[in-house]
Amino acid sequence: MSTKGVARMAPVVGSDDGTQYHKDFTLSITKALGDQLAAALKGLDRAPLAEESIARLKEKPGVYQLYLNGEFVYVGKADKSLPARLRNHLRKISGRRNISLAEMAFSCLYVAEDFSALAPEQLLISHHKGMGNIPWNNNGFGNKDPGRQRDSTVLKRNHFDVLFPIDLDRPIDGLEPCEGTLQELLEAIKGGLPYNFRYGKSAEFNTRRVQVPARDMTANEIFSLISVKIPDKWQVTALMGYVIMYDDSPNTYKSAWRYYRDGQPIEAVPEADPAGVTEVDQSSTGE
């Protein structure tokens, strides 16, 4: 009998009489789920990453994919609300240079809450990494504030913050002409920026008065203004991905590109490591 076109069985363990009745078999349920999720997302249209599109979504958990100029760049999940998670990304990208929200699109799937325990975004990441890289899942895009201990880190050249630094020429949301304490202004700045502004504490912030002279002042203008009002030895430092303010002047930071001291912006040249693997995204798993 010809064996042409017949699939051959892998060798199996049998008995002495030549019968074969058992062998090893590996069931990859996670791979199957990842393939199904990827196929479902691939079959969807893409919507602009804009409030109008996000507002049509249901307040449900799920997974999503982001696209930059039509190219797939990021996989994430929302444990509670897809709209809330996508709005976070919209706001973050709105405060960056070298990128426009008009270039961004998304697609998403609602996923049952009990399914979230299987980490569906990791299933998708594994699926797509098997066919190539996912640029933004490995370059710090989804990371939250790394904390004080990471402020001096030298970033890789392919890090999201290096490719798309914060925009200091963007007006601060909701900031109106006013007069108040420095502490009140710092809180307003923090709430009005689409990137993180972290600062130290000082009792003097509650006694020093500051006047905001105009509406729609940019971050650059406001940081120049408050750098005159902060106590001696304090400085504002614009890093590639966020802004910090501490009593460490004239300390320098390896990834800083602008300092504010005594009312003057001081330009700097940030360092960057050669392109390579960056820290793993720590916040694609939900809000």
Rank of each mutant, 00 (worst) to 15 (best):
T181C: 09
T181G: 15
T181S: 13
L182I: 10
L182R: 06
L182W: 07
E184L: 07
E184W: 08
L185M: 12
L186V: 02
L186H: 05
L186P: 04
E187A: 15
E187W: 14
E187F: 12
A188D: 14
I189P: 10
I189R: 08
I189W: 10
K190E: 15
G191L: 07
G191T: 01
G192V: 03
G192W: 09
P194H: 05
P194D: 01
P194L: 00
Y195D: 08
N196D: 04
N196A: 14
F197D: 00
R198V: 14
G200R: 08
S202I: 02
A203W: 09
F205G: 06
F205W: 09
N206H: 09
T207D: 05
R208A: 10
V210D: 02
V210P: 10
Q211T: 15
D216E: 12
D216W: 03
D216A: 07
D216I: 02
D216L: 07
M217V: 04
T218P: 10
T218M: 11
T218G: 05
T218L: 05
T218R: 07
A219L: 06
A219F: 08
N220C: 11
N220G: 04
N220S: 14
I222Q: 11
F223I: 04
F223S: 07
F223P: 10
S224P: 12
L225N: 11
S227K: 06
V228A: 11
K229V: 15
K233G: 00
K233S: 02
W234L: 01
W234A: 02
Q235E: 10
V236G: 00
V236W: 00
V236Y: 01
A238F: 08
A238M: 13
L239F: 00
L239D: 13
L239C: 08
M240I: 08
G241R: 05
Y242F: 15
Y242G: 10
Y242N: 14
Y242R: 15
V243P: 01
V243I: 15
I244Y: 04
I244L: 00
I244C: 03
M245D: 02
M245E: 07
D247Q: 03
D247K: 14
D248I: 06
D248K: 13
D248H: 12
S249E: 14
S249W: 10
P250T: 08
N251H: 13
T252I: 12
T252K: 12
T252F: 01
Y253K: 07
Y253C: 03
K254R: 14
K254S: 06
K254Y: 11
K254I: 02
K254F: 13
S255V: 02
